[in-house]
Amino acid sequence: MSLLGLVWQWFMDPQHWQGSNGVPTRLVEHLHLSVESVLIGAVIALPIGIALGHYGKFGTVAINISNTGRAIPSFGLLVLAFQVFGLGDGPIILALTALAIPPMVTNSYVALREVDPDIKDAARGMGYRELAQVLRVELPLAVPLIMAGVRTSALQVVATATLAAFVAGGGLGRYIVDGYATQVYQEMVAGAILVAGLALATELVLAVLQRALVPRGLRLLKAPTTRRAAVFKVA
């Protein structure tokens, strides 16, 4: 039977959808690792990027440091973290967080820098204090670029969380590592398909989230003139 046929059979086997090695369990493990890493990464990266972008200082330094971070191979970091902290989710999340941070720092810095200085002036002129100006004027305008960074990070993390299986972690990578070890190649392919599917789903969910976060005015700016006019008339 062709490999694809075997893969199809693998997916159809109810055995693979239950128990501690079933797809639902592995999916939850994979999501847990990914979500936690991206959230921790966001908590660290976004404030730094936003603050630096707002003040426009030390930007080059921060961007360079965070870009150097991109050059760290995740697998190397993972193995290193395992050596230091031993078995468990900790080292995996550490390595994935390190992967998640750079795109979010860079994008949020650039996003805040790109806010039109005239708008900032206007906000100041209308009596916004610094924090309010950041939160209510600059951030909403910066959402599309910031979210682009978050999406890049999330996608990389979801794809890379596969590596967890190399240090005895869970997640969808288990199928790839175990399938390889036992030479059950349909299991490997099934694992790869699941990871790819999850990455696409992540992208989709975050795209929807981004849409919800972008202020209506900003969305309208990009809409065709006729629709813009129509909306403004109603409003």
Binding site: S20, F82, Q83, G86, L87, G88, A165, V167, A168, R174, V177, D178, A181
Partner: peptide
Amino acid sequence: KDFKALDTDGPLTRAAFASNT
């Protein structure tokens, strides 16, 4: 009770013994 996929007689096995996993 359960099976934990590690490595064959490598560092993962040793770490798993150490943590009583």
